[in-house]
Amino acid sequence: MMARRNVLAGMVLLAIGLGYGVLTAGLPDRSLPGTPGPAFLPWLITAGWLALSTALLVRGLLGGGKNSTDVIEHRIPAQGWPALVGFAAYLLLLPTLGFIVASILFFASLTWLYGERNKLRIVLPAIIIPIVLFYLFTAGFQVLLPRGPWW
C-alpha cells in the first residue's frame, strides 16, 4: 500500500519538480559575474527535489515501505471529507456573510460532524463562541474581522 503511495507521490513530485525547474529557468539573472544570483538557490532546490523524488519513485517501484503498518492510521476519516468541504465553503462565504454568521454555520456543522446530536448542544456553543471570539478580536486585539450584511 505504502509502496504504491510512494510511486504515486514520486511521480507527482517529479512533475512538480520539473515545473519548478522550468520556472527557475525563467528567473532573471541579476547578479555580478562569478557571484550567485536569485536563481542560485532555486536551482539547488530543483536538483535536490528531482533527485529525491526520483529516489522515492525508485524506492516505491522496488517495493520499499510495503510492510508499513501505519497506513490505516493516516487515512482521512469518513467525516473528514465533508469537514474539508465545509471548511472550504466557510472560507469562501466568510467575506460575503461576515465572520459571525459564517462562523455560526461552520461551527454548528463541525460540531455535528464530531458526533454531537443534541440540538441545544449544537446551537448554543455555535452562537456563543463565534460572537465571543468576534468581540475579543475586534475590540480587544483590533483585528478587523469581516462584517456581513446582517451582523
Partner: peptide, 25 residues
C-alpha cells in the same frame, strides 16, 4: 471539555489567527 466544542473553536481560531496577521483573506 468536549471535543465537539473544542475542535470547532480551534478551527475558527485558526482562521482568525491567519487573518489577523495582515487582515487579509
Amino acid at each position: 471539555a468536549p471535543r465537539t466544542i473544542l475542535m470547532p473553536a480551534i478551527a475558527i481560531l485558526c482562521v482568525v489567527g491567519s487573518y489577523a496577521l495582515r487582515n487579509s483573506f
